[in-house]
Each structure stands twice: as C-alpha cells, then as structure tokens.
C-alpha cells in the first residue's frame, strides 16, 4: 500500500515539476502579454495542482492534508480571477498611449489572425466613450 502511494506521489510531483518548468520557459519564450498569460497559467494551474496532489498523498490523513486541500482550492479559485483582471487591464490599456501595449516581437507571430482582434479592441472603447 505504501509503495503504491509513494509511486503515485512520485509521478504527480515529477509531472508537476515538469509543467512548472515548462510554464516558466513559456513565460520567457512567448512573444506578447496575452500569450505569456497562457504559459503562466500552465505553471500556476496545472503545475501547482499536480505538486499539491503529490504532497497530499505524502501527508496522510492529518491537519496538513486539510491545509493542502485549502491551498489547492485557493489557487484554483483565485488564479483565474487574477489572470482575467490582468487580461482585461491589458486590453483597456491598449487605447491609452501612455501604457501602449504592443507585443515585443510581433513579426514572429502570424499576425494575420491577430489583426481582427486589434480592430475590435480599438472599436470597443470608442463605443464605450459614446455611451458614457
């Protein structure tokens, strides 16, 4: 029984470490803010959850297990909120020239697909101003 739990937690922790490192590499490789958010969410959601599950298996039934579960819930519930707030703030900042938000190396990405989104992002705030 102990062997099974050990093997399982080895698997979870190795997988979690892998996703954590991959997400961090993505944070460096991706070309702009939004794509970097995807990489960060790989490490923050999947990596962290797998590591925590691995630790839970090692903790056994105790108060530590309850705390780890709480930590897992916090991360899974607050992670999307922070990411969404970041994405929304980045989108609104595009119209303000002070915080102008351009991809670092836009030529590397296939810009043909990103173009309609940019047009939409510009059209939306104009509508918003007219309403208010």
């Amino acid at each position: 029984m102990e062997l099974i739990i050990n093997v399982l937690s080895w698997g979870f922790i190795l997988a979690g470490s892998f996703f954590y490192v991959v997400g961090a590499i993505g944070l460096l490789r991706m070309p702009d803010v939004f794509t970097r958010m995807h990489a960060a969410s790989t490490s923050d959601t999947t990596g962290a959850a797998l590591l925590l599950i691995g630790m839970m298996l090692q903790a056994g039934v105790s108060l530590v297990l309850a705390k780890l579960m709480m930590l897992l819930f916090f991360i899974l519930f607050t992670g999307p909120v922070a990411t969404h707030a970041l994405a929304r703030a980045a989108r609104y900042a595009e119209v303000e020239p002070v915080l102008a938000n351009d991809g670092a190396k836009p030529k590397k990405v296939s810009t043909t697909k990103a173009k309609p989104s940019k047009a939409k992002a510009k059209a939306k705030p104009a509508k918003r101003k007219a309403k208010s």
Binding site: F34, H38, S41, T45, G79, P80, H84, A87
Partner: peptide, 11 residues
C-alpha cells in the same frame, strides 16, 4: 475558460 490553459476570458 480561464482555468483551462490556452484560453483566457477577457471580457
């Protein structure tokens, strides 16, 4: 949507 890696709900 946001929790799933690869997609972010913006607004």
């Amino acid at each position: 949507i946001t929790l799933t890696p690869g997609t972010i709900a913006v607004e």
